[in-house]
Design a protein around this nucleic acid. Structure first.
Lengths: 143, 143
DNA sequence: TGCGATGTAACTCTTGACATTACATTTTGA
DNA sequence: TCAAAATGTAATGTCAAGAGTTACATCGCA
């Protein structure tokens, strides 16, 4: 299985919020039309990004803005906010290895740290990319 | 979402195949009882490991054996065999960004290489761990 | 107070993982 | 040669999660 599209949607949302911050009020409908998904999906993700402190969302008048400098928001921050993978569970471990089998009894002890290392490698790379990196690339194509 | 338990099951199977290779005939029922899943699941994964050339499976008499030295089989080989994630699609990208939006039109160009880098980091770590590493650890607990 | 937003509950649809039953096929050895 | 013991695999069911959608309560400003 794949990591939920909530992650790429969230990144797309943040890109729009920065690029269009002067020209438009950033509402869930506005974002929904660039991303082509239902506004309710957007509002759900807006909530999660807000709870993580990455953005601010106004009720009433409406509109969302990014709450920090772009170079202080990493892909990992976004990834964690939208809850794609619960902590330390990238790999789904089969539930009930047989405790009466010498291998079944010890498989967790032997595998868990290795699975964590693999997940950590991915998360490390997520941390190394910031929204500033992405929007710098994006600017090349907008000119 | 998580990476399918087919991966940890496959690793568990290979561990058993090595540890018990002298004492028992390794059938799908035997593996199923150590892992505690249905034998049909095991047979499906046995097929995939066989197609990838990692093991040999006998019909008729039954029994599976590992086809290569343990230090030549990496976690990545297993991961690829059992087809957890199609090539280069760890992240699920939302399908239809709006081509009339400057951001929607370019989001793929900007994101794709970064997502690949993240996936590559994970796969690199998968490649760095072999079945020999795992079974060395396992032996510590079996004595 | 009304309008334009967000927040959120409820429901449906679809997909994939996994479990299970059933049976055809293969190989060996009695 | 035939029965036994496996594997190979199709068909079906169950369940959970992602995603879409509708509906409506709530908020804040003009």
């Amino acid at each position: 299985m794949q990591i939920s599209s909530r992650f790429t949607i969230a990144i797309h949302m943040l890109a729009c919020m920065d690029v269009f911050k002067e020209e438009y009020k950033i509402t869930s409908d506005f974002l929904a039309s660039s991303i082509n998904v239902n506004p309710v999906i957007i509002r759900k993700i807006l909530s999660q990004l807000k709870d993580a402190g990455l953005i601010e969302v106004k009720r009433g008048p409406g509109g969302a803005v990014i709450a920090k400098p772009l170079n202080e928001i990493t892909f990992f921050d976004v990834y964690q906010s939208v809850d794609c993978i619960e902590e330390n569970t990238l790999f789904h471990f089969h539930e009930n290895p047989n405790p009466d089998c010498p291998v079944g009894k010890n498989i967790h002890r032997v595998l868990d740290d290795k699975l964590l290392r693999i997940q950590a490698a991915m998360e490390q790379e997520l941390r190394s990319i910031t929204l500033a990196d992405m929007n710098a690339d994006l600017q090349k194509y907008l000119g």
